[in-house]
Design a protein around this nucleic acid. Structure first.
Length: 211
DNA sequence: ACCCAGGGTCATA
DNA sequence: TATGACCATGGG
């Protein structure tokens, strides 16, 4: 399995090139993006983040202090704007209480991951995205594309998040840039070739990933 | 007019 | 444990 996963990464890298993820300028912006992109097209998230920047609200303090109706207005393009406003406010409250980005950045991976998962609105993928891309922790991110693609390739036969995460983390070299690049490439692959319907027979993914 | 998107929570069986 | 409803905007 090990050589398969690494081999697939190599092929994807060759085909798509480096993705330079996460698209965001600061760790906090990456964290906000990780929450806003939940089940949402990235283009819509960019509009929301631009609104926050324009309002000079892209910092934890302002996020907590601002009226909910204002935050809702800024992030409206990213959808689920009421739910996500609540998530952002709760998350930023937690962040401030714990010394901001520098404060939580010093924690160990295991402890920090459990903390994040304890926050309302932060599930496994959002937590791992924050860990891996905002804080540089070696925590592999699994998403719907990963589940779909690797099941279709026949390399896994489970949809369980943590099972799949372990498969990747056990088999891949423990390398941050590899974790970051691999997940980004999986998203590139999923966006371009691996739609839910139809589940194509001659899926380009298979030839792309075959030996 | 449909399906989909870089999920997560909650209620129900 | 495992489905289903719900959250909501914008692109194809």
């Amino acid at each position: 399995m090990q050589s398969r996963l690494i081999n697939i990464h190599k092929k994807l890298l060759k085909h798509f090139g480096r993705q330079h993820w996460w698209p965001g300028e600061t760790p906090f912006e990456i964290m906000v993006g990780a929450i806003l992109t939940q089940n949402t097209n990235w283009g819509n998230v960019e509009r929301a983040i631009n609104n926050l920047k324009q309002a000079q609200a892209l910092n934890p303090q302002k996020m907590v202090e601002s009226k909910a109706s204002n935050v809702e207005c800024w992030i409206k393009p990213s959808g689920y704007f009421r739910a996500k406003t609540k998530k952002l406010k709760i998350f930023c409250g937690w962040l401030l209480k714990n010394g901001g980005v520098p404060g939580v950045g010093g924690w160990g991976l295991g402890e920090l991951r459990r903390e994040l998962l304890g926050i309302w609105g932060i599930g496994p993928e959002t937590a791992d995205s924050i860990l891996c891309y905002a804080l540089g922790k070696k925590s592999f991110v699994v998403d719907a594309y990963t589940v779909r693609i690797f099941n279709r390739l026949g390399l896994i036969k489970t949809k369980d998040y943590h099972e799949i995460k372990k498969i990747f983390e056990n088999d891949l070299p423990r390398n941050l840039k590899l974790y970051q690049e691999y997940h980004a490439l999986i998203v590139a692959l999923g966006k371009n070739y691996c739609k839910p319907k139809p589940a194509c027979e001659n899926c380009p993914v298979k030839s792309l990933c075959s030996d």
